[in-house]
């Protein structure tokens, strides 16, 4: 099989063409934080945490959407990238209400982990904290928009894996919200199959099962990735 020669953080690598930079990094234990990426779902490049520098390209590129090409020289851990990852993380925390101590996902939250990872010891920006709805109309699950970071993993898993297309996005800018059907309460959705994939895909405490809270809550996003893999197998 043909391979491409690339360099990541000065390390020469031989990689298969067609892979994204993020895939190659994960395979080689190069740590790049992500939020909107979930193995098995289409990448959208929205969270901007996985930005990398590519020599000869004047813009930072999201590694989840950029495919490797021959002789690419990639830097993933520069001071600039680290600074930007921290700013992005701070903006997540400042945007909506992410007070870990009173969140159901405390201890099981990718956003919380991200905060530790990028060394966020405080938030330099004013908290915006818009007053968002908490939709408890569904029989088994809750959608708390105050904890949502708009990664759209729920939207994609619902459409791409479950095929239900219950979730979508409305409004724009700072006012974007995840909606169920055409902005009806989740419990009244005509498309939701109550499969719970969105709950597992959700990286924060935005979607959680009604019966559980605190340390009982265990999300299993890897289950989604496994499911996608199995579906692609022709057994």
């Amino acid at each position: 099989m043909t391979t491409l020669d690339i360099y990541i953080d000065d390390k020469p690598l031989k990689v298969e063409p067609g892979k994204t930079i993020l895939e190659v990094c994960r395979e080689n234990d190069i740590d790049i934080p992500t939020m909107c990426h979930l193995d098995g779902l289409t990448d959208v490049g929205a969270c901007r945490l996985c930005l990398v520098e590519i020599e000869g390209v004047n813009k930072l590129q999201s590694s989840c959407t950029t495919k490797v090409s021959a002789n690419m020289v990639i830097h993933t851990q520069t001071e600039r990238l680290k600074r930007y990852r921290r700013i992005t993380t701070e903006l997540f925390f400042a945007e909506r209400n992410h007070i870990c101590a009173v969140c159901v996902a405390n201890g099981n939250c990718e956003l919380q982990q991200l905060g530790y990872k990028v060394g966020m010891d405080h938030i330099r920006y004013p908290y915006l904290f818009p007053s968002c709805e908490v939709d408890t109309s569904h029989d088994y699950m809750v959608m708390d928009h105050n904890r949502c970071i708009m990664c759209t993993r729920c939207v994609r898993v619902c459409g791409e894996v479950e095929g239900a297309y219950n979730w979508d996005v409305m409004n724009r800018g700072f006012n974007v919200r995840i909606i169920s059907d055409f902005n009806t309460p989740w419990g009244e959705s005509g498309t939701c199959t109550s499969c719970g994939k969105c709950m597992h895909a959700c990286p924060t405490g935005a979607i959680w099962p009604k019966s559980l809270s605190g340390e009982q809550l265990h999300k299993n996003p890897e289950m989604i990735s496994e499911l996608v893999k199995k579906r692609k197998m022709n057994l």
């Binding site: 929205a46 969270c47 992005t88 903006l91 004013p126 708009m150 724009r172 800018g173 700072f174 974007v176």
Partner: peptide
């Protein structure tokens, strides 16, 4: 720009709001 940001990526969605404020 804040009003017209589509809200997809964090730097534009939250960054323009912070800059505006």
């Amino acid at each position: 720009c804040m009003d017209e940001s589509c809200g997809k990526c964090v730097p534009c969605r939250v960054g323009t709001k912070m800059m505006h404020d």
